[in-house]
Structure formats: C-alpha cells, structure tokens
Design a protein around this nucleic acid. Structure first.
Lengths: 188, 188, 188, 188
DNA sequence: TGGTAAACGAGACGGTACGTCACGTCTTCGC
DNA sequence: GCGAAGACGTGACGTACCGTCTCGTTTACCA
C-alpha cells in the first residue's frame, strides 16, 4: 500500500553523481550538494544508499562505458594492439579519466566495496582477454603454460596506473607493452 | 632574527601522520587530530603545510621505506624474480599496504602532488630496473630494441594495482609475471 | 514543511546567556561556551541569531526584570523618592548590575542594536514617569512648561551611569537627586 | 647599562590606539594590529602595558581633549547653559563620541580600571562645576543645602548617557536640563 | 472511492572538522 | 637589556557537511 520507491529520484541521484564526479572529482562530491543538484532530499539518499561510495558504485555499474571490443582476427598481436590502443585513447577524454580516478579513490578508501566494484567492472574485460588468449593457445599462437589471467591483469594494471597518474599511454608505449607481452607469451 | 622554525614540531607532525595513516588510513586523518597527536597547534601545521596531502608527501619522502635491492648476478631472470618477490612480500606487512594506499589516495585527490610524489618515490626503483636491464642488454641477454623503461613501469604498475586492491601478489603470480616479461624481453 | 524551530533550544540559549552574563560578564561570554552550556550546536545559534549581542538582546527583552511601580499618591515628591530608591536598591543585587553592565557593553559595541534595546527597555519606565508627571501637572503640582520626558531621562541617565561605574546610588544621593529635580519642576 | 625605554615606541602605540579607536571603535582594536600599525613588536606592548584597556587608559589621560571652560559671570544659569551646550556640541564630532564610547566600553569591561579612568577624567570637570556652584552659594544664588557634587554628577550622567546612545543632546534638551537643575538649586 | 502507509521535499537538529584570527609567551638576533 | 621579528600553544571564530530527526504533502495500493 505504501508508495513505491521513486525511480525518478534514483535516476536524478545517479545523474548528479556522474556529473559531479566528472566536473569536480570524487573527493569534493558532498551528499548535501548531490541532494541539491538532484532536487532530492538528503533523507531520500540516506534511505537508499549507505555511503557516497555506494552511490558512485551503483552509478558506475549502471552507466558503464562500453569498453572496446577485442577483435578476433588471425593476427593476435594486431588484435591486442588495436584493442589496448582503443582503451588507452578512451582515457584521453577527461570524463573517462575522472571516472577512473573516482573508482581508484573509492577503492583506496573502502577496500571491500572497491574490490567488488573492480571485479564487476574489470571482469568483462578480463573475460575477453582470457577468452581471446585461450583461442590463441588452441591455435598454437600462445604457449600452453602461460597463465592468461595474469596477462590480462597486466593490461588492466597498466591502464589503472596510467589513469591514476593522469598520464594516458601514448601510442609508442602501447606498442611497447603489447610487443613485450606478445613476445612473452608467443609460441616458439 | 625571529625564532627559527621548530624542528621538533616538524618531526612530531611527520611521526603523527605516519602513525595515523598506518592505523586508520589516510582519509580519516584530520588536521585537528594530527595536531593533538603531535602535541602541536593547528596553526603551526597550517603555517608550514598547505594541505593534508602535502604533509603525507613530506612524510613519505622522508621516511621512505628501503626498497629491496635488485641483485646483479649472471642470471637476470632469477635476479628479477628475487627482487620482485621481495617487493611483493613487503606488501604483506599491513603498514606498507596502508602507506601505499595512502599514496594512491593522495594521488587520486591531488593529481599534481601525486605525480611529483610518485616520481620521487618510484624513480629510484625504476632507475635500478633500467640500469640492470641495460647491463643485460650489453651482455646480450636482452634485446636491444626493448624499451626498458616501459618494462620497469610494468613492474611498478602491477605492484601499485595489487596494493590498491589490497591483494598482494603471491609467489605464483610473481613467477608468472617475471616469466612472461623475461620471455618478452629476452634475446632469441 | 520542514521541522519547526525548536523552542526548547531557543530557551536553553536564552537561559545560558543570562547565566553566563550574570556570572562572568558579557565580554567573556563565547558562542562556543554558550552552545556547550545550552546543549545546543553552534550552527543552531548561528542559524537564528546574527551576533552575541542579538542573543543578549532577545534574552533581555524576554526576561525583563519587573521594574518597580511608580506609586500615585497625593505626594509627588514622596512617590518619586520611593520609586527611585527602589530602582537604585535593585541595583545592589549583583545580578542586576551585571545585566545592566551587559546592556551597556552591547550598546557601546553595537550602537544600532543598543539604541533599539534601550528603547524597548527604558520606554516602559519613561512612560511611567511621564504619565505620573503629567498627572501632577494637571493637579498643578508641576509647572506646565516642564519637558517631562527630559526629567524622565535624567532619572534613567543617573541610574545608567551608576550601574556603569558599579556604584549604586545610596539613600542620601537618591534623596538629593529627587530633591533637586522636585524643586526644579515644582510649581511656585 | 640597560637601554632605556623607548619613548618613540610609547608614542607610536598611543597614537596608533587613538587612531584605531576613532576609526574602528574600541572593541575591534587588536594588540596585533596595534603593534603592526605602530611599527612596534608585540613584546614591547606586553612589556609595558597589562591590557588593551590600560593602553587606552594611558592614551586618554595623555591626550585628554580640553574640556570647555565653565565661565564665571554674574549669571549662573547662563554660565551653566553655555558650558553644558559647549560640552554637548563637542559630542557631535564623531571622534569625540568614539572616544567616549571607548571609555564606556572599557568601564563596562574592566570595572576597576574604568572607575580610575572616570575619576581622572571626570574629576577636573566636577571640580569646575562644584567650585562654580560654591561661589554661587556664597553669592546667595544657590541654596546652602544643595549637594553640589550631586548636581555635577547629573550633568556628567546626562552626557555619558547621551554618548552611550550616540544621541548627542540638542540645544532644546540642553536648555531643558539646565532650566530644571537651575530651578532645582536656585535660592527662593 | 476513500483510507492508509510509506516515500517524498524540506530543513532543523547535535555534531565534527575545517581554515583563520588574535591571544599572550617564547626565542633569536641586532643595536 | 631593549626592541623587531615572528614561531609557538591555545582557543574562539564562523562555515560546511555529516547523519538523524521531524514536519507536512503526495501517491499508489487495498478495502
């Protein structure tokens, strides 16, 4: 019989959080400001979310930027290069960097939530890489004894570190990273 | 002619910051609490530091943990493995993790200061790796066309990412990383 | 629609201000101390009052001590003497003196508020005197050309000055003042 | 052998205090600002004066405005009127009002010092009035049984009260006061 | 079709920390 | 030893948000 939760309010808060993070950075977002921006009362926020980090978490999961597709051609090296280059150049848009930094800030603040978020966000990417590399193993292009999950992590770690430093990887570095990893995992 | 700055006060603040970061995490450090803990007035803190981040910065630069030595034997792979393993197991001490997370938090908050700090702290490590790899290039163990700085970055990025997630690299992952990178850069 | 202002909080602040003024004097009252004493947050004080003086003002207006009644007998001189004597001996209670001194301090600090307060507090007294003297004029006991408001002011000024100096008027001085003023205004 | 106290520093502080009181009011004078204004170190101020009030006290005693002379003609009423009118119009200069208000503020804050200051400053004036009235008593213009000191106090109290309220006495009020008091004390 | 109960906006509340200001004390150095 | 310069510990200032708590008001469901 009660009135159901207002989807409109929820959306407003998500939108306000995304806007605030992109324009001012996660640290300077306040619940007070969020409520005002979203035209929502503080109580409504506290009723549905347990912390600022939780709001950002939901916003990230919901509005997750479409990460670039890892192509599947015959040339593994070129596939990885193209994909990792696309990921890195995405980071040149200011908005994406701020989102990534916000994710890092949340993780540095709240380890448990951070882990969960990273898992949810990174898993699809890791999944892609792992799957592509397994295919390559089957094709005999990657050694059987390579732990493909670790390789996926190396890509993610480089991206994360670059975002943290606000220093997106340029083409040359992208190439260097792919080159080293490809040689590191390639058969022969 | 006025009274000179009190070195004792400065030291107290550094010590209080280190203690607070290790026990409660960077975010929950307050200037107020720091001043109380250090037996120093807030004014003294504001007189000499421009922000909480700046205090942590100074504390980190000053009390930098001795990072493990990269050995120089005939076996490059083993040298790297031993060194990276030592670095990773250092991260199993809670204190180190908290310091690293604090560094990440500061970087995520104040990009400029973060960059400077990361440079100051990471440079000696990168220097070691680069120098060791150059030696190996001269010995013909590493290909001439490898960008050794990028390889150094890959080690740092993995460490940073692991610290961020509070998930230190276990022996198996350390081995996997070194294995891939060694194959990636090795001659032949 | 929001929660209405808390009358309890308002009362607490009033009470705390009155207590503090009487025990320590107006100057050494602090907002911080007032808030603590009243069990109220500083923000609540700043939300509703613009200054320390404004709080005292409200407290004075609200808790105004009942000033003595000016009797109306056939003997004007005796009426004035009795009333002015009562007023003066009220000033021998420490509390009243401190309140009067606080009023003076506020007036010396914030002229506009001071004027308003003095008006609100002195007006009923002046009113009494003026009305009594007009009655006396009608009865032919006071000359028609006397500006009775000025005479009222002379009583108030003497009281204020005595309070300022912390030197309450003794019976002899009270008599002397009334004697001079009575002769000054009396018919014949 | 010790260096004697610097008269120059003392003068600077006095001047700075007078200037500050006249331009901003006593309450907002700070030792810090006084020192800066006077080009003197705080220590020098604290060495020689015990409080802000004490500095003002010294400044007032030293730079005491010449109070108007009470003339001695054959017409007592006219003498008093001229003198009291001069005193009151002096209060129309903003500077004088601020000085008087400062004196009142100090008195309301520090009763002991205030009493001493008032005594030092008011005594010469009271002396004049008392002496003039005694002369008049001898001439038979004032009744023998009048307590002339109380009459002097009535003039001072009116002036003080008017200054406190920042409401200088206009000519009409001056006349009314003198008229009432003259009739009050006059022979016959 | 009207009652009812939860969700809503608004915002007051007791708090904590902020960064600034002035206090009064102290230490240093030059005269 | 006086005086300038100014660092120090102290504590109040006024502000910003915190998270909690009423207040009406609105709105979907159920009787």
């Amino acid at each position: 019989m009660p009135r159901p939760r207002s989807e409109k309010a929820r959306q407003s808060v998500m939108a306000a959080m995304r806007a605030a993070v992109m324009s001012d950075g996660y640290e300077s977002v306040t619940i007070e400001g969020l409520a005002a921006e979203a035209g929502v009362s503080k109580q409504t926020i506290y009723r549905w979310w347990s912390s600022k980090a939780a709001i950002l978490g939901e916003a990230l999961l919901e509005g997750s930027l479409p990460s670039p597709e890892l192509p599947v051609s015959e040339d593994l090296a070129e596939d990885l290069r193209a994909w990792f280059s696309a990921m890195s150049s995405q980071a040149e848009h200011l908005a994406s960097v701020e989102v990534a930094r916000a994710l890092i800030a949340v993780t540095a603040t709240d380890a448990a939530l951070g882990l969960a978020l990273n898992k949810r966000l990174a898993d699809p990417i890791i999944e892609q890489v792992v799957s592509r590399l397994r295919t390559a193993q089957d094709a005999g292009d990657v050694r059987r004894d390579v732990d493909v999950a670790v390789v996926a992590d190396q890509f993610i770690a480089m991206s994360s570190y670059a975002a943290l430093l606000g220093r997106p990887l340029d083409e040359a570095r992208v190439d260097a990273v792919v080159e080293v990893l490809m040689r590191g995992i390639g058969a022969r």
